[in-house]
């Protein structure tokens, strides 16, 4: 099934946990959710990964051997972060030069 993440939908961040690596691999191959990070194996052998899916698709990821936990509203989080993006051009003044975040250590 191809992904169907129309950008008009709210995208949820969900934590997908499969009973084992083969189950997760099959889910990713067949459902093709957008993912972040990489599969992480837990002590009990289960394997989890972040996925980003429209709300209406989140339930479809639930299958035998697979649990889906909603972590948050990724679209809302991203919209909130958009308020942390600069406006205009902070370097418009030719004398404005970027500085890095490292400390310059005199020796």
């Amino acid at each position: 099934m191809p992904p169907d993440n129309s950008h008009d939908d709210k995208i949820l961040r969900v934590r997908v946990t499969a009973k084992d690596a083969d189950t997760l691999r099959a889910l990713l191959r067949d459902e093709r959710p957008d993912v972040g990070g990489r599969p992480r194996t837990h002590a009990d052998g289960s394997v989890g990964i972040d996925a980003y899916v429209p709300a209406r698709k989140a339930e479809a990821l639930e299958q035998p051997g697979v649990t889906v936990k909603v972590v948050g509203d990724a679209t809302a989080t991203g919209k909130a972060r958009q308020t942390e993006v600069g406006e205009g051009d902070r370097f418009a003044d030719p004398s404005a030069v970027p500085r890095g975040l490292g400390d310059k250590v005199e020796e």
Binding site: R81, E84, V85, G86, E87, G88, D89, R90, F91, A92, P94, S95, A96, V97, P98, R99, L101
Partner: peptide, 21 residues
């Protein structure tokens, strides 16, 4: 004249203008 300009993410224009500066 270095700018203490790291208050926010850079927008697209600013990424490029940073290199120019």
């Amino acid at each position: 004249a270095h700018t203490n300009s790291n208050a926010r993410y850079l927008n697209t224009t600013e990424v490029d203008s940073a290199l120019v500066r």
